[in-house]
Nucleic acid binder design. Structure first.
Lengths: 344, 344
DNA sequence: CTGAAAGCGCTTACAG
DNA sequence: CTGAAAGCGCTTACAG
């Protein structure tokens, strides 16, 4: 069964293709009668515009690209959901590609999307990425790009972020407020801005409270798909290295849950022996025993806002208006649960 | 900066567009010299074929649609990852849409994808879906469609599945083998084939072992984003209704983890008082205390195979060969952990 | 080996 | 209000 085209509708009604096209697009210069006739015939023949032809003419595909470091990740799933929900509202499709936290792959994915001529790109950077030419290249071609969560401060495009430093400060301050004196930090990898910022927030909170910063209390984890294991291993190592630690601020809930599991196994009491604050408010943090105090990170909202900003830029571009990059900062909050408690 | 076209390359070299096109596509009837020249110029000008024009000519977009009931779901994330990894290998893009387990939305998404002229569709059905005209319509238009995980037996398209009945039987048999005599089942919603099959597997295992089937021991859960809560509630209800139950086979790990959390809270010992087997082998099942025995369900593999099958059909279609729907069944296995144990 | 020409299905500036 | 025509950028059957 061949798809129905404008031509067939035109032939059926013995009018021109032009008029059919105009009628279907509600151009004002078509008589009501003709319009009605055309619409009816189109509906009857189950006409669908050939999107390939439309794309070629209008030079837009109503499709955007989304590059995510890792799809199997609760936070990113939430972001994806926010993006596709918002995109759907505006009639946009979303093509998802995964960078696997690899710079090379990320470059390749950008290239693929540019070849595909998507209208715009949403991206959360790979941990490895420290050079941004592939991103600025996109911008140079007047293709809108919006970064979210894992961003590069140096690149002058719109971004949707949280204030990681502030959030980490809040988390660490909470540990201090509940009586912790010697606080460790399980941080993320070295490059990504958000793991740097969380580290800096942790450090600043210590200093502001006259607690010494001790670099040997900072443990690194990849935060890869082995996060849970890393949490366990870091927890075990910490017990070996520093038995005097009484609090930990941990880069992600997943790692924190690994740590809790290890502490539970070894009979370390939380929060009596060690208090813990995680990051992201993954729902499992309220399922683990003890429940995990954490920073709530609004993933769905982040996805939604990222698309909204991209959409604005898409529209501005169509109207030849200039686009001013915008930094959108979403609020985070501290969720207090059983892994932290003021002990009397 | 305007994109470079074939025309520009042709003008630069003073040859025809035809020859440029052929040279870039390695047609044999182009001299080596010309080919080299064209390739060099194209590279230099950073030429990228306009995919819109290519789509229009070739009538394919190298893009497939994927409809998922719920993106924020560990199992489905894994499937998505498998799909996009495999699609990328073959040079295909994947557009993701979410049905939210709603039949109406699912219909709409199918419609959107058909308008978009994707080359093929992968779908896991919404729980609500009990009419399949929207699916058969796709097939009638010679658009390949492959179902996975949540399928409809009645629709004659390719499917990638596991043997839910067998897996559930295996899970229940394991409970029986470890000494359980009165086994409850937390099942999924009424419509989806896989929750029906898991229920039937449970029932058959009971009967084969001369244990009476008691419908009051079967609890339903939506398996929505409230799964964890449902697990807790069902567990609480079960204790109230049937204090003599000594084992539960639970439809998904997420629900099972909710149940474990509730039992832990109430001081019910697992597996001493109640043994539990879950379904899916979500990584949290090895993080919870006690670790959860479960059925391993190969999500990544399922995604991979689903795309592979779709790709085969896409190729067959292009060669005008007939397509025979294929049912691909993936193996599952029982993972024994601490939530089940033979007690002496 | 090279190229002129048709055509994919649409949109839209322009003429009447 | 209607329609002929150009053109988006490519591919490919065909002629030379």
């Amino acid at each position: 069964m061949k798809p129905v085209t404008l031509k067939e509708i035109a032939e059926t009604l013995n009018i021109s293709i032009t008029t059919v096209s105009k009628a279907l697009k509600d151009y004002p210069d078509v008589s009501k009668k003709t319009r009605k006739l055309v619409r009816e015939t189109a509906a009857q023949l189950n006409y669908r515009p050939n999107s390939f032809a439309v794309n070629l003419r209008t030079k837009e595909s109503k499709t955007i690209g989304l590059i995510i470091p890792e799809v199997v990740h609760h936070f990113f799933s939430t972001v994806i959901k926010g993006i596709i929900a918002q995109a759907e509202k505006k009639g946009y499709f979303v093509i998802i590609l995964q960078s696997n936290e690899s710079y090379e792959l990320e470059k390749k994915q950008i290239d693929l999307l540019m070849s595909k001529h998507v209208d715009g790109i949403l991206i959360s950077l790979a941990n490895e990425t420290s050079d941004f030419k592939h991103i600025t290249d996109v911008m140079d071609q007047d293709k809108p790009i919006v970064m979210f969560d894992k961003i590069a401060k140096i690149v002058n495009c719109s971004k949707v972020i949280i204030d990681d430093r502030k959030a980490a400060y809040m988390a660490t301050q909470h540990l201090i407020d509940t009586g912790c004196k010697r606080i460790a930090h399980f941080r993320g990898p070295l490059l990504p801005q958000n793991s740097i910022d969380r580290f800096l927030g942790y450090k600043k909170a210590l200093l502001d409270n006259d607690l010494p910063y001790d670099s040997s209390l900072v443990y690194i984890c990849d935060c890869s798909d082995k996060s849970f294991e890393e949490g366990k291993n870091n927890a075990a190592q910490l017990l070996k290295d520093h038995s005097d630690v009484d609090g930990i601020f941990i880069n992600t809930d997943m790692v924190a849950i690994g740590a809790i599991t290890e502490f539970n196994k070894r009979g370390i009491k939380i929060p009596e022996d060690i208090s813990i604050v995680g990051f992201s408010n993954w729902f499992m943090s309220s399922a683990i025993t003890p429940t995990l105090s954490t920073i709530d990170q609004p993933g769905y909202q982040m996805g939604k806002m990222a698309f909204k900003q991209l959409y604005k830029e898409l529209k501005a571009l169509k109207q030849q208006k200039e686009v001013h990059p915008k930094i959108i900062e979403l609020e985070t909050s501290l969720v207090k649960r059983d892994s932290t408690k003021t002990l009397i």
